[in-house]
Amino acid sequence: MNAQILNFVEQMEATLLNDIVTATTLELDLYAIANDMIAQNNKTDFPEICQAYEVVKHHLIG
């Protein structure tokens, strides 16, 4: 895993933690976070963001 993927993993996890703290309901949407990151970043980052999504998903599941 390269540094860029780790950076995206940290960004996704930080966003999830922020959502937990600030949300009035517990509706966490990792998919929506990844989609926002794809929209905000360069299209060449798409594979790294997808890999980061899978890493965070696996961290959450088990």
Rank of each mutant, 00 (worst) to 15 (best):
M1T: 13
M1N: 13
M1G: 15
M1Q: 10
N2H: 09
A3I: 05
A3P: 02
A3S: 14
Q4R: 14
Q4F: 03
Q4W: 02
L6Q: 10
L6Y: 00
L6V: 04
F8D: 06
F8N: 04
V9K: 13
E10Q: 14
Q11I: 10
Q11N: 06
Q11V: 09
M12H: 01
M12G: 01
M12N: 00
E13T: 03
E13V: 10
E13S: 02
E13D: 07
A14F: 08
A14N: 14
A14I: 02
A14E: 10
A14M: 11
T15M: 11
T15K: 13
T15A: 06
T15R: 13
L16T: 03
L16D: 00
L16R: 08
L17G: 06
L17R: 04
D19Y: 09
D19R: 10
I20C: 14
V21Q: 11
V21C: 10
T22P: 00
A23L: 03
T24D: 15
T24Y: 03
T24H: 08
T25M: 07
T25N: 15
L26E: 08
E27Q: 15
E27K: 15
E27L: 12
E27H: 13
L28V: 05
D29H: 12
D29W: 11
L30Y: 04
L30V: 04
L30T: 07
Y31N: 11
A34R: 04
A34E: 03
N35Y: 06
N35S: 14
D36S: 09
D36T: 05
D36F: 03
M37V: 02
M37D: 00
M37R: 07
M37N: 04
I38M: 15
A39E: 15
A39S: 15
Q40G: 08
Q40W: 05
Q40R: 13
Q40I: 06
N42I: 11
K43C: 10
K43H: 10
K43Q: 12
T44Q: 12
T44H: 08
F46N: 08
P47C: 03
P47S: 07
E48Y: 05
E48L: 06
E48H: 10
E48I: 00
I49H: 02
I49N: 00
C50F: 09
C50T: 08
C50S: 09
Q51H: 07
Q51I: 02
Q51A: 15
Q51F: 01
Q51Y: 01
A52D: 02
Y53H: 12
Y53C: 00
E54H: 03
E54L: 09
E54Y: 03
E54A: 11
V55F: 05
V55Q: 05
V55L: 08
V56Y: 00
K57T: 13
K57A: 15
K57Q: 14
K57L: 14
H58E: 08
H58Y: 06
H58I: 05
H59F: 05
H59R: 12
H59C: 04
H59V: 04
H59E: 06
L60A: 09
L60F: 12
L60N: 08
I61L: 12
I61R: 11
I61F: 04
I61T: 13
G62P: 05
G62T: 10
G62V: 04
